[in-house]
Amino acid sequence: MVNPSETGMVDPRIFEELQNKIDEDAEVREQIRAIVQTLERQGRGAQSILSRAHSTPAAHLKPVLDAAEGAIKEEVASIKSLSDVASSSPYYKYNGLWTRDVQNVIFSILLCGWLGGMAHNGKAAEAGRLLTIEDVGAILDGTLIPIFQRLKLTISVPVNLKDRDAFHISIEEYLQSLITLIEELARLAVNSVTLGDYQRPLQISQFVKDLHAGFQILNLKNDSLRRRSDSIKYNVKKIEDIVYDLSLRNLVSKS
């Protein structure tokens, strides 16, 4: 029953606290936004450097890759500060604020790695290779390993991360970046021919087909990942057409 000494229904502290919470959240969001803005600018820089690969013969890629690695290094520094700020909040609370730009960074790393850059952890750079999500995590920061619940192919991932809430790269982000990589490689296949490189389209074709096969076993729901992954088959076809043209004109050796 009502206690006569209590005057109102609402304890005024309730709404004071709520307001504090709202204001605190707004501040965190502001901090994250500032970093994301930097990341966005750096991302554009890195991608503009990497796009020079389309007009540079494979043999002369070194300066492009060096410049790209420099740009990626700056992005990595931003991700580090993002991780510092974001770590004080639950990962998924603000994840939507940065995911797009983090995907961009991952894509730059993947493309640079495929082109033959991004040597790390004693692993030599080699053109045509796929950096795994663990590689990306290691490049971004030793601590920035993805949280997997039971992924066995990792070496350095601590076990039992199930209940740890920390900044990380999600599978979805990595897959989104892979799709962007595929789109970019389809363009590179065309431009390789223009540069007189008839072997690279074959290499791209095999690589993209292998990725496509991987995507095919995923049970994707009606989400953005599925919508975007639908584009993979068109890129596969685009690249196959190039290989077809090259074969037809006897521009590639038949093995």
């Binding site: 192919l153 087909k209 292998d210 096969a213 095919q216 076993i217 049970n219 088959k233």
Partner: peptide
């Protein structure tokens, strides 16, 4: 492109990709 592709021929092609173990882990997680 989804799960309704379990014809034998496809399966063979699927196994040829070196990335399959990685994608299988992703599939389980997803």
């Amino acid at each position: 492109i989804k799960r309704d592709h379990n014809g034998v021929k496809k399966e063979k092609e699927v196994n040829a990709s070196p990335f399959m173990p990685m994608f299988e882990a992703f599939r389980d997680e997803l």
